[in-house]
Amino acid sequence: MKNYGVLRTNGFFIALALTLVCALAGNYFGGLPYLSLIGALVISLILGMLFQVFQRPIEASREGIGFISNKFLRLGIILLGFKLNLIDLASAGVKTILLAVVVVAGTVSMTYFIARKFGVEKELAILSAGGTGICGAAAVMGISPQIKVAESKLTRQRENEVMAVAVVAILGTVFTLIEIGIKPLLHLTPTQFGVMTGASLHEIAHAVAAGSSGGPISLDTAIITKLSRVLMLAPAALVIGGWYQRTTPVKEGELKQKLPIPWFMAGFILASVLGTFLPLGNATLGFLVKTAYLFLGMAMAALGMSVNFRVILQRGRNVFLAAFISSVILLMFTIVVSKTFF
């Protein structure tokens, strides 16, 4: 028993070291000009998948990897709340908040509906819809704990998480380049272009990359619009979790899951309140947000270390197509709305 305890402890520290390396590398490479379109979180996930070549340390640290992908994820999302300045969001006006509500509700519902029509399983459809409609990888990982599956399905659910993250990462990058490319054809003002990019693109990094191509006004507007969608993550996770439990039949011999309450989402909102109203200073807020991305990067790396990407390639086509169609419709909708109302 003593040796087993030592192995468990050593496994946790091995997992901690491996995921930390991936997260730090992801933050570094994610800051480079061309790789910034992909983003630090997705790079950390890819590095975690590549680390599967080191089979012995991965197997020895399997329990630690599971702990990090679960607990560090929640801690990272809580700290990410410090990125949301509620005063800035309020100053953006009712139109921006209303647009965020419509985009999140409409895109999540539409993506889920299309994915199910294409035969995508319920859990994967929910995760890809959340990532497409809200804020990319962070939304996928924030919603996933609300999808309570049987223990026998945990491995498949982790594959679903990676697939959903991969879908929003690829599509977000593609649509960032598309929006930058069609900008001269749309004849939008800087504010309108910022609204379009912030309301349509998947990750914060994508909105920043595209918005910056329109100048400082466009960039600021893109960030505010995108953060308005990020603010929807907490209520969306609660609604989706409750809806999933009500609409998922219980198999014989299984107990009905309790309605999931995302307490870490309450921490996310509390962090945004503290960051808005306490005089923490830009340096402190910046440090907390960087720490958030470090923890999220470690969680993403841990996720990458525990999936079978051969299965992901086999199952990913239909969900990718569904999210692509939804993203095209979302882009057209935001072009019309930005031209008409902003």
Rank of each mutant, 00 (worst) to 15 (best):
S144P: 03
T96R: 12
F113I: 07
F118Q: 11
Y112L: 13
A125C: 07
A90D: 08
A92Y: 05
A129F: 02
G133L: 10
S91L: 06
L86S: 10
A115K: 01
L89A: 04
V102Q: 13
A129D: 02
K117Y: 06
A125Q: 02
K117R: 11
E123S: 11
V120K: 01
R116T: 03
G119Y: 14
G119T: 08
L99M: 07
A138H: 10
G142W: 04
L124R: 08
V102A: 11
V103G: 08
I143F: 03
P145Q: 07
M110P: 02
T96I: 06
V102M: 09
G136F: 00
T96P: 10
V102G: 15
V108F: 14
L89S: 02
L86A: 15
G93M: 00
G130M: 09
T96G: 10
V104Y: 09
V104K: 12
I126P: 00
A139M: 14
K122I: 05
L89H: 01
L89Q: 02
L86D: 06
L98M: 12
G131T: 15
L124W: 02
G131N: 04
G136W: 00
F113K: 07
A92P: 14
G142Y: 03
K122L: 05
L127S: 02
V140N: 00
T132E: 04
A125K: 01
L86F: 09
F118P: 09
T96S: 05
S128A: 13
K122R: 09
E121R: 11
F113M: 11
V120E: 02
V120M: 05
A100Q: 08
S91Q: 11
I143W: 03
G119A: 08
A105T: 10
K117T: 11
E123N: 09
V108I: 04
A90T: 14
L86R: 04
L86H: 15
T107D: 07
F118E: 09
F118V: 15
L98A: 12
V104S: 11
V108E: 05
M110Y: 13
G130F: 12
M110F: 08
A115D: 01
T132H: 07
F118Y: 13
V120Q: 01
L127D: 01
E123G: 06
L124A: 12
A92R: 04
L127Y: 02
E123F: 10
I143E: 01
E121I: 14
P145W: 05
R116N: 04
L89T: 01
A139K: 01
G130D: 14
A100V: 02
T132V: 08
E123V: 11
I126W: 02
G106H: 10
A105M: 06
I126M: 14
G136M: 01
L98H: 12
G136L: 01
L127G: 02
G93C: 00
S91A: 07
I87Q: 11
V108M: 07
I143L: 06
L127E: 02
A137R: 05
I143C: 05
C135G: 12
L99C: 15
G119K: 05
K122F: 13
S144T: 10
A92H: 12
R116Y: 04
K122Q: 13
G142V: 01
A105G: 12
S109I: 12
A138G: 15
A92V: 13
